[in-house]
């Protein structure tokens, strides 16, 4: 469409620049973003950063404390676990699993959730009602319990844990997408697109979806951190990644009996989970402030 619009005098900043302008105002969010960048870097380059193989057992060096404690050893900067494996190498490799879990769960649950949510918003009323009741049913179960039971059915492994967590995370996307799509459907631009003759698929994905993305992006950040927490919890309960995988939750489960003797085998994996989840949640808060027009201070 070519319109004879009057020449704009003030150039509107690009969408990303505008977003970053607001995002930057939240210093915590920027801080979180840098930590998250570090986490992604570690996840990508763990094999080159780690001093040892994460599963190699140095049988002469079991339960060595970190270097700054008495008895520490510089070849194992953060100490070793009960089997003599290097804590630092295991932690660095653990970042890969957590990052992988986050990416897979968010991709799967967001794609599925957005599709079902859009379908539900465009579908006739009875179909919409059926879809929403199914989502209610999934939401009636506490998420960790449902994930646990699903893993019990599928068999304990990291892949199955990811599937279970993605299924549990999905209804949130469905509800969110449906709610914002229905809001958009009332607006004039959708009606005009319809009048011009846009097909249903075009209406769904090109006209409406881009305008629903803001809350979905915030939800994606939230579910990334929840996915990491849930995967670690499942690993901790023995229902996620299996030993000797250096997954942080699994590492904690293996370390449990040593909590009163060797604080470092318990402290570091949990700290890694906390810092990662915290950085993502900080970013999520910033995203919400920057994307939610209601909260924008203009």
């Amino acid at each position: 469409m070519t319109a004879t619009a009057p020449a704009a005098t003030v150039e509107r900043p690009g969408r990303f620049r505008e977003f970053y302008h607001y995002f930057r105002e939240n210093r915590g969010a920027v801080f979180g973003m840098w930590i998250f960048a570090g986490f992604v870097f570690v996840a990508a380059f763990a094999p080159w950063l780690a001093p040892h193989d994460p599963t190699e057992q140095f049988r002469d060096f079991t339960l060595i404390p970190p270097v700054w404690e008495e008895g520490g050893n510089w070849s194992f900067p953060l100490g070793t676990d009960p089997l003599g494996r290097d804590m630092l190498s295991r932690l660095l490799h653990g970042a890969r699993y957590s990052f992988f879990v986050g990416v897979v769960v968010v991709t799967v649950s967001a794609t599925g959730g957005i599709l079902v949510g859009l379908l539900s918003a465009f579908a006739p009323k009875w179909a919409d009602a059926i879809i929403m009741r199914i989502m209610d049913i999934i939401l009636a179960f506490p998420s960790l319990l449902l994930a646990l039971v699903l893993v019990a059915i599928l068999g304990p492994s990291l892949t199955n844990a990811m599937i279970a967590i993605a299924i549990v995370a999905q209804p949130h996307y469905v509800r969110l997408t449906r709610a914002s799509a229905m809001g958009e459907l009332q607006k004039d631009y959708v009606t005009s697109a319809r009048v011009v003759g846009a097909g249903r698929a075009r209406l769904m994905f090109i006209t409406v979806l881009p305008n629903c993305l803001a809350p979905i992006i915030v939800q994606a950040a939230l579910s990334f951190s929840t996915a990491i927490l849930d995967a670690a919890a499942l690993g901790f309960l023995g229902m996620g990644a299996q030993p000797p995988t250096p997954e942080w939750g699994t590492m904690l489960a293996e370390a449990r009996e040593f909590i009163l003797r060797a604080w470092w085998v318990v402290t570091f994996p949990g700290l890694a989970i906390l810092i990662t989840v915290l950085s993502i949640n900080l970013m999520g808060d910033g995203l919400r402030d920057a994307l939610d027009p209601k909260l924008k201070r203009s």
Binding site: G28, A232, F236, I259, T267
Partner: peptide, 24 residues
């Protein structure tokens, strides 16, 4: 800030830390 830390806490680890400190 404390609330955000609490919100991000892996509670199974938090429990272990409490046990180490208060019980141990």
């Amino acid at each position: 800030s404390s609330a955000l830390v609490g919100y991000s806490m892996p509670i199974f680890w938090w429990a272990l830390l409490m046990i180490i400190f208060f019980s141990g």
